[in-house]
Design a binder for these strands. Structure first.
Lengths: 215, 215
DNA sequence: CGGCTAATGTAATCACCGGTACGTTCACAT
DNA sequence: ATGTGAACGTACCGGTGATTACATTAGCCG
């Protein structure tokens, strides 16, 4: 981060650098807690440029949010369970999701922050909707295969499964601090990673292979 | 909220009112997003009193946080699964926790906020630690019974189970807005409540009754 | 080269916000 | 009833932080 390139003018680079740094700062301090001066100070350029490229603190935050969601989508496209039996595929997906969340804590924090704000900013980014929808497509396919085989219960849909997996993985990152303090267990301790990853795999595999409850 | 009691002087009431209102405002707007003037405006008293009773915005927030955690502990004491077979007891506990979380969204939001701040405030409230520890006691007892009977797998501990249950319930409240926007499903829609409650029950019951993986 | 615009830098502005100085009034004890 | 301290209210201060007015330079195009 220290003085890699000379100060030649480069709009793209300047803009990109601001976005990257802003992402870190917003993720670290929240929206209201972030100082525009602070973002600027961490770049090779000045506060003036934030207004030149983004117009306002709010629009910068919106750009950060949209960029983060798009980046996550791209990363999620690599989450393919492969060609496994349905139950194993879901287990695999859960474990991949676990690693994925742990590797994108800035994004997780931005989501938390956005929820603190009652989603008022994300609701202005309508274009993101389609993005996450097809993340469910893969899962839906796997579940359908399993239901056809009779190896997966038929009273849950992809969104339910997604919810269970996401909740668990999200919590590990989002609530690391309070949980760690109250229970003396650092959820992100590398030594616990395999244990925690296996748990979410076990949980969904056991759940989905159990017989459906009678309506 | 409008003019219930005359303005007779009452230190306890004033303090309590400030604490209640501050809890709502902090939970709604986050720490940095909260304006001390705003809290004062929503009470029958003035900003001056916040400083009189709490000293600073920060100390007010600490009081809110501590108070919220203590209140939750009290409420959690009523979460008794009753005298059921171990597996059913855990299911019951999961479903009670679900309702409990949904009924305390202010608290959930404060926890999110506190994690945004890397737990820096909660870490100053050491007295809270013991509180949550014995919330695990009940669960631990149930699991032990089940393991002895052979109805509950022996490779998970109370904290693991607590983590799975809390994650799911927490997520429903904490991520309501982003999830709702991205997937068009309002997690707190009353019509979905029974469905969601049943899921977490099914999940833990299926998981814990499955045979332990070989080491 | 000369010039024109995109890109950048400097230094202010102005509202907002946490905190306080100072004055007043209530309620209780004697 | 009155003195005294706790409880309360008003008006203000000083700094901070988002935003902008104005000045400048760099690079490209002909």
């Amino acid at each position: 981060m220290t003085e890699t390139t000379p100060r030649r003018r480069d709009a793209e680079r300047t803009r990109a650098e601001l976005l990257t740094v802003a992402t870190e700062v917003f993720a670290t301090s929240g929206y209201a807690g972030t100082r525009v001066d602070d973002i600027a100070a961490r770049t090779r350029t000045t506060k003036r440029m934030i207004y030149y490229y983004f117009g306002s603190k709010e629009q910068l935050y919106l750009a950060v949010l949209e960029n983060a969601y798009r980046g996550i989508r791209a990363a999620e496209r690599d989450l393919h369970p492969g060609d496994l039996p349905p139950l194993e595929a879901v287990r695999r997906l859960a474990e991949l999701t676990y690693d994925h969340h742990l590797g994108h804590s800035d994004f997780i924090r931005l989501v938390s922050i956005e929820n603190i704000h009652h989603g008022e900013y994300i609701s202005r980014l309508g274009s993101l909707r389609e993005v996450n929808r097809d993340a469910l497509g893969i899962l839906d396919g796997v579940l359908a295969r399993g239901r056809a085989e009779g190896t997966i219960r038929d009273d849950v849909d992809a969104l339910d499964v997604h919810l269970v997996i996401s909740s668990y993985c999200f919590f590990q990152v989002a609530n690391r601090h309070t949980f760690g303090h109250l229970f003396d267990r650092d959820l992100l301790d590398p030594a616990l990673r395999d244990h925690h990853r296996r748990i979410i795999g076990d949980v969904v595999a056991a759940w989905l292979s159990a017989p459906a409850a009678d309506g």
